[in-house]
C-alpha cells in the first residue's frame, strides 16, 4: 500500500517522495491535492500534487519539514509505505484560452507551481517562470522548471545566486517592460501570494493563487479550511484550492494558519524525542 519508490532531498528542509498510488495517479490533475497519513494515528496531511505518472501509477509530493508530522514523513525511505494516501482532491486548475502565462513559485510553492507550468507548457502556452528562495542553498527544481518554460528567472532574497530580489518585484519589472500575461499563477507563502496579487491588481491581470489552509478531511466535511473569497465563505478543499488572488482575504488566511502554533511547538518536542529514540535504537 502506498509504497515510496523514489526519494530525493531537494534542499536541507525540502524532500521529494514518489509514491505508488495508482487510483490517485489515474485521475490527478495540476492544482489538485492529496491527504496522507504517514502512519496509523498520524495526522492527516494535505499536500498539493507536484507530479504524477499515470503509466507507472505514481504520484509525487514535495514537502518542507515544518512540523513534527512532516519531519517524520521526511524520515521515511524508499521501500517504506504510507498508511494512507487519498485523492485526488480539490478542483483542477483551468487554463482555457491562455496564450501567455507567468508562473510564480515562492520557496516550496515552486513544487506546486511546477505541474501548472508543465501543463501550460505542454498546451503550447508561452510560459515565464519566476521562482524565489531565501538563498541559493534553498533553490529547488531549477532544471525541471527550465524544461517547461520559455524563460526562467530564479531569484534569491540575499542575491546569493547572482539575482537579488523578491518574485513580486521581478514580475512587476517584466510587466513594466511590456510583457503581457493572460494569467499569473502565484504559489507560495500566503504573504507572497498577497504581494503578487497586489502587484497584478492595477494591471487587471487574472491572478490565480493556491491556498493551503488547515483542514482535516479534504472533502468538505469539517469546514476548517474555510477562507473568505470575494466576501463569501469558501471551503478550500472542495471549492479550491485555486482561487482568484484579487478576491482572497489573505490576512484572515494567515491568521487562521496560526491556530495551532503552540500545539505544533509541543508536538515537535515530543516527536524529537521519539525520532531520536528511534535513531539511537
Amino acid at each position: 500500500m502506498y509504497k515510496i519508490v523514489r526519494k530525493e532531498v531537494l534542499n536541507a528542509q525540502v524532500k521529494l517522495l514518489e509514491i505508488e498510488a495508482p487510483f490517485v495517479a489515474r485521475k490527478a490533475e495540476p492544482g489538485q491535492f492529496i491527504i496522507l497519513r504517514a502512519y496509523d494515528e498520524g495526522e492527516r496531511i494535505p499536500l498539493t500534487i507536484a507530479d504524477y505518472d499515470r503509466e507507472k501509477g505514481t504520484v509525487t509530493i514535495i514537502f518542507q519539514e515544518v512540523g513534527a508530522s512532516t519531519r517524520l514523513l521526511g524520515s521515511l525511505n524508499v521501500g517504506d509505505s504510507l498508511a494512507d494516501f487519498c485523492g485526488p482532491l480539490g478542483v483542477a486548475s483551468h487554463f482555457e484560452g491562455v496564450k501567455k502565462a507567468a508562473i510564480i513559485g515562492g520557496g516550496l510553492g515552486t513544487a506546486i507551481a511546477y505541474p501548472q507550468a508543465k501543463k501550460l507548457h505542454s498546451m503550447g502556452v508561452d510560459v515565464d517562470v519566476i521562482t524565489g528562495f531565501r538563498n541559493k542553498d534553498l533553490i529547488i527544481l531549477e532544471k525541471e522548471m527550465a524544461a517547461v518554460s520559455n524563460r526562467l528567472i530564479v531569484t534569491t532574497d540575499d542575491g546569493s545566486n547572482g539575482t537579488k530580489g523578491f518574485v513580486s518585484d521581478i514580475l512587476k519589472k517584466l510587466i513594466d517592460e511590456g510583457n503581457t500575461y493572460d494569467v499569473v499563477v502565484a504559489i507560495g507563502p500566503p504573504i507572497m501570494m498577497k504581494v503578487v496579487s497586489d502587484v497584478t491588481r492595477p494591471y487587471g491581470i487574472k491572478t490565480i493563487v493556491s491556498l493551503n489552509p488547515i483542514m482535516i478531511d479534504g472533502t468538505g466535511m469539517c469546514g476548517g479550511c474555510r477562507v473568505t473569497v470575494g466576501g463569501k465563505i469558501k471551503f478550500a478543499c472542495v471549492d479550491g484550492p485555486d482561487f482568484d488572488g484579487h478576491q482572497v482575504d489573505f490576512n484572515e488566511l494567515i491568521r487562521r494558519l496560526s491556530i495551532y502554533k503552540d500545539h505544533e511547538r509541543a508536538a515537535q518536542e515530543r516527536h524529537q524525542c521519539r525520532l531520536e529514540g528511534k535513531i539511537n535504537a
Partner: peptide, 9 residues
Amino acid sequence: TNMVIGKTF
C-alpha cells in the same frame, strides 16, 4: 478506505 467517490472514482 481513502476512496472519495466523485473524485477517485
